[in-house]
């Protein structure tokens, strides 16, 4: 986080911020990380920070998406406008797109100083297919290719801007196209589809096609308290009924047939167990509460391979965007001069 200012405006005059304690230092504990799914626990902070992080992941992490489509030939049954819209929704790899303005990466097209497209704001794609066979042909995102017109001189193969999902080398091309291809249009014999399109940077606030995540949610830590005395007073049949009252199987019977909490993290706060206890007239047998200081996040990418962006990168990008926005606030409100933001590279 950017260094917090030590003054604040209160009732007509500037005050010194009454820090009674050290600023909070939120902690992140990653429990699961793969290219398309990350789970982590955020602690030592409150709902405002957790929700800000969630909303930034959903609406302010930039990616690339098709913005303009120049259609030269369209014999398909799909209207040009419809086709352009479908192109816009295709996911495109955006690993080094740049999260905050000081980053090197891509610049938004409107803010770029170039006249009409340059390697720093645009990537050009083209599609040119004609159906020559006497059967229906499916045009998928595999047919769209980067022309390389705006490729940067020092670009590595890994930085190549391309459509995802990419080719699966384990299965043959036809099966891959059928199973993993995103369908753009279908062509009858002699129908033709030819266009070029331009991918540009944007944030999901402008348009949902820029979404880097499919899921970005958090859940509070459940606090489940059971009254052992009351539970031990139940007959075996009642215990089984109690365990089965939970739709997520949070409770279980141990080896001595005592009820215990087996899968706390699965609790969805439905209060079925509490209702069951109430029905038996045992009001305090079980209570379920939320711990509003512990957040279990689940963030999922759009495609299985982690495109448009690797999901762990999305979380880091969201933290950086939050940090950058805080620095803008401090600059506007207090005139703080901040020239350092959270780095992309992990500090040594």
């Amino acid at each position: 986080m950017a260094a917090a200012s030590l003054s604040y405006y209160c009732g007509g005059e500037w005050m010194t911020f009454p820090y009674e304690k050290e600023p909070r230092k939120p902690k992140v504990n990653v429990t699961h990380a793969s290219p398309n799914l990350v789970k982590f626990t955020l602690t030592e902070t409150d709902v405002s920070v957790a929700n800000a992080l969630r909303r930034i992941m959903l609406a302010e992490v930039p990616t690339l998406a098709i913005d303009t489509v120049n259609i030269e030939d369209n014999d398909s049954v799909i209207f040009d406008e419809f086709l352009a819209h479908r192109m816009g929704l295709l996911p495109i790899t955006s690993h080094k797109v740049g999260d905050i303005p000081p980053d090197s990466g891509y610049v938004e097209y409107k803010q770029c100083t170039c006249f009409d497209g340059c390697p720093y704001c645009t990537a050009e794609f083209k599609l040119d297919v004609t159906n020559t066979e006497d059967k229906v042909m499916t045009v998928t995102h595999f047919d769209v290719e980067n022309t390389g017109k705006y490729r940067r001189d020092n670009a590595l193969p890994i930085d190549e801007v391309k459509m995802v999902p990419s080719r699966n080398p384990d299965i043959d091309e036809e099966t891959d196209t059928r199973e993993n291809g995103i369908i753009i249009a279908k062509l009858k014999k002699d129908q033709k589809l030819r266009f070029e399109c331009y991918a540009r940077k944007g944030i999901p606030k402008y348009h949902a096609k820029f979404m880097p995540v499919a899921t970005a949610i958090y859940q509070f830590e459940p606090i489940i308290r059971t009254n052992k005395q009351m539970l031990d007073g139940l007959s075996l049949d009642e215990r089984i009924e109690f365990v089965q009252s939970c739709p997520r199987k949070v409770f279980d019977l141990d080896i001595e047939d005592n009820v215990h909490v087996a899968r706390k993290e699965d609790c969805i706060f439905c209060d079925e167990c509490v209702a069951k206890a109430k029905a038996w007239g045992k009001k305090d047998m079980v209570t379920v509460k939320m711990d509003c200081g512990v957040f279990h996040f689940t963030v999922e990418a759009v495609t299985p391979e982690g495109g448009p962006r690797n999901v762990i990168d999305v979380v880091r990008a969201a933290l950086r965007v939050l940090d950058y926005k805080m620095s803008l606030f401090l600059k506007d409100a207090y005139g703080d001069k901040i020239e350092e933001w959270l780095p992309w590279e992990r500090p040594a």
Partner: peptide, 12 residues
């Protein structure tokens, strides 16, 4: 008939 000139569209 469909116009045979390139047309530009915004993908919105």
């Amino acid at each position: 008939k469909r116009a045979r000139k390139p047309m530009q569209y915004q993908a919105v």
